[in-house]
Amino acid sequence: MNGWRRRGSEVRKRGYRHTVRLLKSYLHPVDPDPAFSRRLEDLCQGLGADDLLVAESEPAGYFSGRRGMIIGGAVFSALPFLGVAAYAINKHLARRRAVALGV
């Protein structure tokens, strides 16, 4: 055999049809391991699926909307303090300004 077949005394090469037959006998539906099927089924249903959805889809949809609110809130909360700081710095600089008299 070995891809070659004997016909009488001569050895002939196997043809295209043999390759097709071989391929058809080789390729066939394969059943996964039952334990794997059960594990994946458990993962896909009920709480497993919910956990996964929260873990993978929420960062994009949920936090991207919230992020802007959090940053905006922080900036606006800091504004009065920034104003007070600016006022104090201005006063401090004005007090230290030297003015030459009688020149």
């Binding site: 539906p29 394969v30 059943d31 996964p32 089924e41 896909c44 249903q45 699926a49």
Partner: peptide
């Protein structure tokens, strides 16, 4: 989301078969 199980049951073998022949071993196919 629980209804996804029906789709999973229907297509597990099909997907697994394809992946199995492409990668060549059960572990990676799983």
């Amino acid at each position: 989301r629980e209804a996804f199980e029906a789709l999973y049951t229907k297509y597990l073998r099909k997907v697994y078969t394809y992946v199995y022949y492409r990668v060549g071993n059960a572990e990676d196919a799983e």
